[in-house]
């Protein structure tokens, strides 16, 4: 049987929304989807897939690449080789996918954001979304893909019949890597998710010394300062200010992004803002694709000019 295997990403009892993109890709390609998921109450819409395999292991065991290869091996022994194995393009999704690709010696295409089903082509971003590559697995075996969140979820649709549900027991569990505990982010007194107006600084800010001038501008505008990951990594702003997949998801009335290129991990955290304004000196920066308004200029000049006008 030709089918696609969808590896669910579940965490702390939640079936992550981005799994719908994995399922949607299968629907789009017209492939029967078998979903594998740890046994538990996830409240998923089962009708979205053709078949479900509930694996009798804890979440942390399931999401461990050293165990996932054993689970995949058992599914394939039962059901035959899938056309593809689909993972989310997340921290755990890419970890599981890359390890499975190496273990089973399979082609892998990560961060797929669209596809051409007639030509069997998967589109993958290069150079922070400035170029796309049309990728194709070589040969007719199983291919592994990870799917960018938001790309295919609209294709996910109910099947005519309820899925068959099976369980898997006796999964071999590795002791070479074990989960210990979750570590929560430290509490902070600012909550950028509550702000109506965010002034967000990207790597384009250049160096730490410039930041205080933007804080001054934010003060004049009554905006709250946020930033992209590189600015937080360099400790120019505290972690609580980070926007993006590994930071906060924000939805302010206005998101003013200065010197941010618009990588998807950043965009995922701010694309639903009411109004996005981007300032970037590169007219080709992907952020202009998501912004409502843009200024193509040196951000420092824009900052100084804004200050002049506001003072005046």
């Amino acid at each position: 049987m030709s089918y696609a295997l969808v590896v669910s990403e579940v965490r702390r009892g939640i079936f992550e929304e981005r799994n719908l993109d994995s399922i949607g890709l299968c629907t789009h390609l017209g492939k029967d989807a078998i979903l594998i998921i740890p046994e538990g109450e996830y409240g998923i819409k089962e009708q979205l897939v053709n078949s479900i395999v509930k694996v009798k292991v804890e979440e942390a065991v399931f999401l461990n690449p050293l165990n996932m290869v054993n689970i995949l091996e058992k599914v394939v022994a039962d059901r035959g080789k899938p056309d593809m194995i689909v993972f989310t393009n997340s921290s755990s999704g890419t970890e599981l996918a890359s390890y499975a690709a190496g273990y089973f010696d399979l082609p892998i295409i990560t961060d797929v954001n669209s596809c051409d089903k007639d030509q069997g082509i998967f589109y993958k971003s290069y150079y922070s979304d400035k170029i796309f590559g049309e990728f194709r697995p070589i040969g007719n075996g199983t291919a592994i893909v990870t799917v960018r969140s938001g790309s295919f979820k609209d294709f996910a649709a109910d099947k005519d019949v309820a899925p068959s549900v099976g369980t898997m027991e006796d999964v071999a569990v590795s002791s070479a890597r074990t989960f210990m505990e979750f570590v929560e982010e430290e509490k902070s007194d600012v909550d950028i998710t509550k702000a109506e107006f965010l002034l967000s600084l990207g790597r384009g800010v250049g160096n730490k010394d410039e930041v205080s001038d933007y804080e001054e501008l934010a003060g004049m505008l009554k905006a709250v300062i946020a930033g992209s990951r590189p600015v937080i990594d360099k400790l120019w702003l505290p972690k609580a200010r980070q926007v993006g997949t590994s930071g906060k998801t924000v939805k302010p009335k206005v998101y003013l992004a200065m010197g941010v290129s618009g990588a998807f991990q950043h965009v995922a955290g701010m694309k639903d803002s009411d109004c996005i304004i981007a300032v970037n000196k590169d007219a080709e920066a992907p952020i202009f694709q998501y912004a409502h308004y843009g200024i193509i200029a040196d951000m420092h000049k824009v900052r100084d000019k804004l200050k002049d006008i506001l003072k005046g």
Partner: peptide, 10 residues
């Protein structure tokens, strides 16, 4: 992981 969460593993 996502959203500021981390996991500790051995």
């Amino acid at each position: 992981l996502e959203g500021g969460l981390q996991e500790r593993v051995k």
